[in-house]
Write a protein that binds this DNA or RNA. Sequence first.
DNA 1: GCAGGCGCGCAACATTGTTTCAAGGTCGCG
DNA 2: CGCGACCTTGAAACAATGTTGCGCGCCTGC
Lengths: 166, 166
Amino acid sequence: MAGHKLDEIDRKILAELQVDGRMTNVELASRVGISAPPCLRRVRTLEEQGYIRGYHADIDPRELGFEVSVFASVRLNSQAEADLSAFEARCRAWPLVRECHMLNGEIDFILKCVSPDLSTFQSFLTGELLKADNVANVKTSLVIRCAKDEPGVPFDVLEARLAKNA
Amino acid sequence: MAGHKLDEIDRKILAELQVDGRMTNVELASRVGISAPPCLRRVRTLEEQGYIRGYHADIDPRELGFEVSVFASVRLNSQAEADLSAFEARCRAWPLVRECHMLNGEIDFILKCVSPDLSTFQSFLTGELLKADNVANVKTSLVIRCAKDEPGVPFDVLEARLAKNA
DNA sequence: GCAGGCGCGCAACATTGTTTCAAGGTCGCG
DNA sequence: CGCGACCTTGAAACAATGTTGCGCGCCTGC
């Protein structure tokens, strides 16, 4: 699956679609330097092979009234695999939790949450998260402002590494 | 700007495009229950008004050889606005840093980073981040696994709130 | 050199994107 | 109550794009 059999054109396609996922196929083809039909075939292949997991509109939560973002550091009582999985399943079911990452070190999980306002988050925190089985400790940090938010792959780094190894 | 003058159709459009940002306009129109032309006009308006910030392909970093994700908690020596802005600007320039959020509490910033391997991240950490001006302290946590990663807006919560207020 | 496979580009058709225009609906005001 | 301005919608027509099948050239291995 991780066979790095991507040529330069494939990587250009991924980089372009990461910047603008709604670009038309003809536009994409002209940018990467091939004609439209093979370009479309490459995109389909990249989708099937899992390089492209999907396409999503990037919607501003604040514009829709989600004024509050919070990072929550969670510690559990038990780190047995079954308990970890159970907590992850609960996170997937909570709509306010948008991301859930398991970490090494003292903190077991970090959650990224959004909420319309502080009181909504507080009732989630006290009524749901802190009451959940196996949760020992939660430390929350309000996001004051966001300087950078670009999930994805730094293609410039990737190209630099490939150039060095060549 | 934050005038919530979105009707149900607009919210449906946003929800659909968040799930599949490459959906065809005619497909989108049929899903939200109107014909294609007004649907396209609504999408354009939502883009212009900032509800939709863009469209991005969701690319799996692991497939491209970025095996390591790290959260870094950063404390600065000075929290003067000029110093905060300077640090944010540095984060925007580091390709391995994908997200940079300013927090309240003890921690000043949390960074989400990706890297091809641990040694690359370590050289970034010791050679760049820890050497940067004003950085007092950095605590890093490796991501072991990711249970949920759905940036965006929980539209089910939004609709529930609107129903309650109606 | 030659057969096979692979990737490209061309051309044709199906589908979609986009504009234009007229009809219906809503709101405010006389 | 009725009128008029405004907004939104949907149908039609055209331009643009998505999609498929086919043939050519290139590389590879024998």
